[in-house]
Design a protein around this nucleic acid. Sequence first.
DNA 1: AATGAATGAGGATTCATTCAT
DNA 2: GATGAATGAATCCTCATTCAT
Lengths: 194, 194, 194, 194
Amino acid sequence: MPKLGMQPIRKEALVKATIVEIGRAGSLDVTVAQIARRAGMSTALAHHYFGGKEAIFLAAMRHILSIYGAEVRGALAVAKTPEARLDAIILASFSAANFRREVISAWLNFYVLARTVPGAQQLLSVYQRRLHSNLLAALRPIAGAKAVPLAHAMGALIDGVYLRAVLRDGPPDGQAAIEMLRRYVAAELEGRPE
Amino acid sequence: MPKLGMQPIRKEALVKATIVEIGRAGSLDVTVAQIARRAGMSTALAHHYFGGKEAIFLAAMRHILSIYGAEVRGALAVAKTPEARLDAIILASFSAANFRREVISAWLNFYVLARTVPGAQQLLSVYQRRLHSNLLAALRPIAGAKAVPLAHAMGALIDGVYLRAVLRDGPPDGQAAIEMLRRYVAAELEGRPE
Amino acid sequence: MPKLGMQPIRKEALVKATIVEIGRAGSLDVTVAQIARRAGMSTALAHHYFGGKEAIFLAAMRHILSIYGAEVRGALAVAKTPEARLDAIILASFSAANFRREVISAWLNFYVLARTVPGAQQLLSVYQRRLHSNLLAALRPIAGAKAVPLAHAMGALIDGVYLRAVLRDGPPDGQAAIEMLRRYVAAELEGRPE
Amino acid sequence: MPKLGMQPIRKEALVKATIVEIGRAGSLDVTVAQIARRAGMSTALAHHYFGGKEAIFLAAMRHILSIYGAEVRGALAVAKTPEARLDAIILASFSAANFRREVISAWLNFYVLARTVPGAQQLLSVYQRRLHSNLLAALRPIAGAKAVPLAHAMGALIDGVYLRAVLRDGPPDGQAAIEMLRRYVAAELEGRPE
DNA sequence: AATGAATGAGGATTCATTCAT
DNA sequence: GATGAATGAATCCTCATTCAT
């Protein structure tokens, strides 16, 4: 018996199923049938709601990025000093919600997706730009002229840590990642102030 | 006009074609037919020489890793001081031969491959371990207790720079990458020694 | 115009088409495409319903064996004496429904299939055991100690007649086969009673 | 270093390899490459000597049939009485040389081949006719009018025993087969003479 | 005599997508 | 809203066969 207002529920189920399946498969080689089955519906319905596989992937990507964005935003809101702001970004990047096996796996694969699908590339660019500007805003007061290169390096380092976490067998170690980032920032800031 | 001793020639052609095609496609969604066509032979011959698609991918991966390994080894051989050794690794990582669009793209996709194919995972692990031990050997004399975490961070940073280079449109900027790494090392080494 | 409840209809069509095609080809070298075409559907649908070629073959085999089994069961039900029972088995074995060109051809090829596919071997074993026990039950009261070897021989003779029918050009002669079996039984039973 | 007069040696090796491979595979799904490898040569050479796969199969079939024929001929030559002649045929049919796993498997598959390849059909017909006339010649003096149907039944029974031997797991039991045939003949001859 | 090289043809299987119900 | 039915278009892989050496 079909109910009204199922659309958002179905869509969310599909998005979550997509992330799980990409995590499980370790690649984008995931069939719509797998996603739909895990979401508890037919493939036809999945198509009905999203129009196509690519749109499903994009929605999953948007979901992950928006969760990450929300977490960062929330943490920044309560941080008072530049140092606290910087740390908030680091902590959000490796929080339990984001630095999870499936999410990391999906993340890596979205980098791949971005090479093919313009929409994905755009989403990833937006995320990178936002991260960069957040980092920059926090760094500017405390790093001076170093702020720009430092922000670039931190972005790359975060991504690198994600990338490496994909390969490891056990659960990802967020704490170690956080320490690595903190240590990096500390080292760069400790040096001659300019 | 069949000649003798074609096997190595054909295999190499296929490996190179594979890297090019993965670079072009931006993903592992590359058909054997595409690879074979670019290598100038039939798909049947590609299968004949490698036995299957996976083996072709693995050979391509091994090729890239071995070139990188050779370059590092060569640079380390002539470097006399620890500092020179460290710089040699950095330079090799972003040399014109390795830090090329196609190679970077292939690199990213090999990370994905490693999630599925055990052989690929192993190859990547070997590469990471070797890089780590090279970094460590160079850092130990000059970074003391910091050597281990620093080597980890450098490895992650290198991978992160690769990952980010994938997304950018233009040609990858090896020089900027080198400077980013050098700057980080300098900052860490400058700080209080323990 | 897709309707509901097509699964059993499609499956049956595929099973029948399989038997016809094996009969036509004279071997198991029958493509799924041929079977699907004759059954009036795409190969994809055939795979969808059966999961693979082997499963289609097994279903066809099961179909033939079950028809034969049903016919024997039906005939045994109305036979009152051991002699009538024995004759019922013979008649069913060479009835118009079973002793047809295509069915015989399929039969032979299922023997071949049984050499490769465990499921097929099992099906054939079941058929042989059931035939044997039916024969034995009918023979025991009238053949005494001879019953066991006689049942074996009759089974072999029936199979042999099938085998030879495969080679002949014209339509198989069920009547002649029945007479051969009857004569064989008569000869064995006439001999000294023990 | 190619030698002269290799042709018959190579051909025989291929024929034997073919029988072994058909026995191993349990079907005609045997590649020329497998046959050639087992025979210790390249596929190109196999083609060179036989011209094609079909010709290889036919040669293998001819080989088996001719061995069987030779054995029967030899046994008939020394048999003095009709009874002895009959027994000679039975014995030859289930001799250790013929009633072997691989040979039986090949035999079955030649029945399949005969449905497709005219040459195979002809070979099999020749064998059947020869067996029939041998049986008839032996039976005529001792079975009178029964000779013809008895010869037919014996032929079918022999084939049936072969067919059933294919399915059994263990080694084929020639002795049991011989007894089955002898028992049948005895029963028919014992009965009232007309 | 012998073989490595090479390929065209074909075959099983998968999958995103569409459509009628 | 929801789904079973259905397929066209790939894709990987195999294999008999040919050819130049």
